[in-house]
Design a protein around this nucleic acid. Structure first.
Lengths: 235, 235
DNA sequence: CGGTTTCTTGATGAGCCCATGACGGTGCCA
DNA sequence: TGGCACCGTCATGGGCTCATCAAGAAACCG
């Protein structure tokens, strides 16, 4: 269960930002932060976090406006923090599109539990196309499975899948050898480029129509590998 | 805004049940109620509400168990009520699958706002039938029962059911060994892969037409297990 | 408290996965 | 043109994982 979710923390009090950042990072989350509403909207658009933790008591834009701004284009979970006990604020924030409302002071454990709950929900909903189709095969990232277009299954070993998963989920982009080695074999690897050669050959033998002339799993000499969807002859 | 959602209220204090019922009905919700955990699970299975408001302080079954029971077959929003402030209870409830946690005494306006937020989210998701049919057997996730197509019941032990439940409700998707162990035995397990081997053999003996050649409960060596509906010969 | 179901644990054998080394090919540069 | 670095391919043995059987321990139930 490698979570590794990205969380955007929005608060003008640096103390709280720091406390949240440290705690969340310790739990394996990737944390970004913003100190104002404008900044928050910009960073959310740029970095595409998986969840937002938002303090209502921001200078500048009203917190509720930030919620509306986000909801204009995304449904990622928004957890609101506030010192205000008032029911009216809570209702306003929730109806504006917030997912949850936590009153300060709050326990870190509870906040993280609410974050987990929110992320769990959104991961069900999230239809961020975890299926990648090519003329030769179909990769289902959610089901961890590769099939032929006709439905026949192609069995990959764990290591093979690890490589395919990393390459396919950064489709088109170059992935360095070190990135692959660390991602599949663990943080202590990085030199064993021969592993990659052996396994790339194996993967190509299973997936490429012509393993000798790769069309999907491309070698970038001296740099790494790239997964590319080659549509030639299909449109 | 098509309201008219069905809400199941679970509480043993009739006062609270009545207050919630009146308020929610006034807002256009259809309200059902239950006074115990057992009753709640039964009514949820029968009436298929769109959301559940659940008091943790029930006599009989523990509230967290009710959450787990529901989560075995449905992802409808569960909002927990409790007098307890303790952070540990909150975390336990949220991690068991609750969507929200409201401490008594609560404002009716806030509760309804949280209900609205939860329903808004779940209206995007929507899920599939809690009954899964294969040519060899039928799994009823709500009733926690497995039967032959002719109706004859197949008895599973609690552990066997736990495994089948997890695999069946993520049908098609690969479920890692750690996920299964944690889901069935608890968060402190994860290494005991031999348990899985023994129980998978048992499950196959009970459900697979040919236990030696599994068609439904598939092992993905080194990765985990997958429940698959194999239609061969039936269409 | 006795009997039965259910769970844990150990042992064994089969099969597969992967690390490793050897070898050949190719492109780049001196 | 020769050397070097990098990549692809093949063969192999050790080690790990899985399936199955069996028996002891624990939990459950009347």
């Amino acid at each position: 269960m490698t979570e590794e979710a990205r969380v955007l923390v929005v608060d003008d009090e640096t103390q709280i930002v720091r406390a949240l950042t440290v705690n969340l990072q310790a739990l394996g989350y990737e944390v970004d932060s913003a100190g104002s509403g404008e900044d928050a909207l910009k960073r959310a658009a740029d970095h595409r976090p998986d969840a937002v933790i938002l303090d209502l008591g921001l200078p500048g834009i009203d917190g509720v406006e930030v919620i509306r701004g986000l909801r204009g284009w995304t449904r990622i979970p928004i957890i609101v923090l506030s010192v205000r006990e008032g029911e009216r604020e809570k209702i306003a924030a929730l109806d504006a599109g917030a997912d949850d409302y936590v009153t300060k002071p709050f326990g870190m454990g509870e906040l993280v539990a609410r974050l987990r709950a929110a992320l769990r929900r959104s991961s069900d909903t999230d239809q961020s196309a975890p299926v990648i189709e090519t003329p030769a095969f179909v990769i289902d990232l959610a089901a961890k499975r590769v099939t032929r277009p006709d439905g026949e299954e192609i069995r990959l070993t764990p290591t093979e899948w690890g490589i395919v998963e990393i390459l396919a989920s950064s489709r088109g982009k170059l992935v360095s050898q070190v990135q692959l080695l660390r991602g599949v074999w663990g943080p202590n690897y990085g030199e064993e480029t021969n592993y990659l050669r052996v396994f790339m050959a194996q993967i190509r033998r299973k997936l490429e129509p012509d393993p000798g002339v790769p069309r999907y799993f491309i070698t970038e000499p001296g740099m790494g590998y790239r997964f590319e969807i080659d549509d030639r002859g299909t449109r």
